[in-house]
Every structure is written in structure tokens, then in C-alpha cells.
């Protein structure tokens, strides 16, 4: 092997790309770093990447555990010499002590306690998983029929699929919204899922894949007495795993990240918020440094699953995301 000899051109290329990489990575750095720092450090813009992680008081925790009337009375009886204010101050001091925490922990704990982030994440999982599952249930048999079964009207149906590929979902958002509202379905999981159950792109993709499956495989299955229904799920599905995986990545990434459609159909019921909606709501709190830490912690929690999965299986992800390239 030749050692990498120094080359001006090569170094220059690395320099240019490195500057680009720094700019691209900047918001990820800011997000992660801010999610670790204390409110003071955020406001003064100091502390490097990790911040000092000095002990701080969790004000939310203090507010939640403020000494109640009964507790103050009890403490006064125990120490009769003190007046009420002094007892209160003493109790408050204990609370503050118990609420001492490190900034990083404070941010991530508040992210989950100040907004129902766990619920949002759960909603995200429920919605993306149901969408993908339903898409497959609808698309796979149709794709098989369009690729391998001869029946009257097949070309017409396929033509319709190609036509529907042209339709961007945003353009039909209003009529769908009206229909869902008339059915009383806005603010429900159904509204988040139903419009996506039909993926013409999925049908197209799986059909192209099934075209490459040899007919002999299907004929053999028929010889064995398999019905068409079991052929789809027991013969075609296993052969389609690689294509299905790519489609899964495409579908999950786009719906986990989707903000537009949830914004349209979830109009107030916070218990139905998906992660991007929840984050937008969090942002509504506005302003001071004590909010940015928890907000960036939420953002990190929401962005992390896909980014980590991407870093672990890059080739598959790039394949899946650029699938829309075939449209």
C-alpha cells in the first residue's frame, strides 16, 4: 500500500469539506450542548460543550414541593420556639436541598415532567407503526396482483397508480380534513393514520420488485395447492423483505418527522400530539434560559432514535430515504 502522500489538492478538498461539515453539524452540536447546560450557562453563552455541571436547584421541583400549611403547622408544634416564617424558611431550605440536581439531569427530567414527552413518543410510535402496517396490508396484495396476476382492467388500475403518484398529499389536505371533521374523526388516531393507509408509492415499488420474482416460484406454490392469498403472505412477502425494509425506513422516517398533517387534524387535544407537534407546543413557552435546556433535551430525545438508527445502518437508510428518487 502506498502511504497517503501529502497533496495540496487533497488537503484543500478536506479543508472545504470540513468547513461544510462544521456548518452542517452546528445545530446538532448546539442542540446536544444546550440540553446539557444550566440555565445560567445558556443565558451567558458559556461553559463549552458540557457546561460545568455545577449543582443547581430545580425550580420546578421546588414549586411542586412547596411546604404546605399542614406541614408548617406540624413543624411548629415540634419546635414551639419558632414563628411561622422561620419554620417556612427552614422547610423551604430542606426542599431546595432535596431539589438540588445537575443541569444535564435537570434538563432531561424536566423534558419528561413538564410536558408529556413520553406520551408524545408513544403516539409517534403508534402512528408510524400503524401507518406502515396498514400500508403493507393494502399495498402488498395489490402489488402482487398488478405484477403477477392477469385480470381484466389491470393496466387501467396500474395507470391509476401512476397517476396518483403525481398527487402531493398537501394538495388534498383540506378536503380530507373536511371529510374527517364531518365524520367526527378529527383529534383521533384514525385521523392521523387513515389518509396514509394508501401508499401508491409503496404499491409501485413492490410491484416493480415482484416483476423480478420468477413465475416458477409462484407456479410451484400453486402446484402445492396454495391459494392466492397464502401465496401473497407466505411466498411473496418473504422474498420481498429487502424491498420492504427499504420501504419501511422510507415510511417510518417520513411519518415520524411529519409535522404538517398532525398539525392539520390534531387541533387541541394534547394527548394525541406526535413528537414534532409536542415540540412545537413546547417552543410556545417562549423566552428565558430555563426553558431552552429542557426544550433542547426534548428535541434531542425526538431526533435521536432516527439519527442513531441511521448511524448504525447507513447504507440501508440512504437506500430507503432516496427511494423517493424512483418516483
Amino acid at each position: 500500500m502506498i502511504a497517503h502522500r501529502f497533496s495540496v489538492a487533497e488537503t484543500l478538498k478536506h479543508a472545504v469539506l470540513m468547513v461544510g461539515a462544521l456548518i452542517v453539524a452546528l445545530p446538532f452540536y448546539v442542540m446536544l450542548s444546550t440540553s446539557l447546560k444550566s440555565p445560567g450557562e445558556i443565558e451567558r453563552n458559556e461553559g463549552g460543550f458540557f457546561g460545568a455541571q455545577a449543582v443547581m436547584t430545580d425550580e420546578y421541583c421546588v414549586k411542586r414541593n412547596e411546604p404546605e400549611r399542614a406541614a408548617i403547622e406540624a413543624a411548629r408544634r415540634a419546635q414551639p420556639g419558632l414563628d411561622e416564617t422561620a419554620v417556612r424558611t427552614a422547610l423551604l431550605a430542606t426542599v431546595r436541598e432535596n431539589c438540588a440536581t445537575r443541569p444535564a439531569i435537570f434538563n432531561y427530567v424536566s423534558a419528561f415532567s413538564e410536558a408529556p414527552l413520553l406520551l408524545y413518543l408513544l403516539n409517534g410510535i403508534i402512528v408510524t407503526a400503524s401507518i406502515f402496517l396498514l400500508q403493507v396490508i393494502v399495498a402488498l396484495p395489490a402489488a402482487y396482483a398488478l405484477a403477477k396476476l392477469k385480470f381484466w382492467g389491470r393496466d387501467l388500475v396500474f395507470g391509476l397508480v401512476l397517476f396518483c403518484l403525481l398527487i402531493p398529499v398537501h394538495a388534498i389536505a383540506l378536503p380530507l380534513y373536511i371529510a374527517l371533521a364531518k365524520l367526527g374523526l378529527t383529534n383521533s388516531y384514525a385521523a392521523l393514520v387513515i389518509p396514509w393507509t394508501i401508499s401508491v408509492f409503496g404499491i409501485f415499488l413492490m410491484r416493480q420488485f415482484f416483476m423480478t420474482v420468477p413465475d416458477d416460484l409462484i407456479d410451484a406454490a400453486r402446484m402445492d395447492g396454495m391459494g392466492e392469498f397464502s401465496i401473497v403472505w407466505k411466498v411473496m412477502l418473504p422474498t420481498a423483505i429487502p424491498a420492504l425494509l427499504a420501504f419501511a425506513i422510507f415510511s417510518v422516517v417520513s411519518h415520524w418527522n411529519d409535522y404538517f398533517w398532525p398539525r392539520v387534524v390534531v387541533t387541541g387535544d394534547r394527548s394525541l400530539f406526535t413528537p414534532p407537534l409536542g415540540l412545537h407546543e413546547f417552543r410556545g413557552g417562549g423566552g428565558d434560559g430555563s426553558l431552552y435546556g429542557p426544550m433542547m433535551a426534548s428535541a434531542t430525545v425526538i431526533v435521536a432514535p432516527l439519527v442513531v438508527a441511521f448511524l448504525l445502518a447507513q447504507r440501508r437508510f440512504i437506500e430507503g430515504i432516496t427511494l423517493s428518487g424512483m418516483k
Binding site: 452542517v24 445545530p27 432516527l306 439519527v307
Partner: peptide, 17 residues
Amino acid sequence: TVFFLPAMATLMAMSIV
């Protein structure tokens, strides 16, 4: 890898960042 990261990340989250 680095240049492709933004395509993966939730755009709403990253816009806020």
C-alpha cells in the same frame, strides 16, 4: 454521513434549534 444527517433529523426540531 455528516451531510446526510439533516435529511434524517426531524425538521421541526432542527428549525427550532
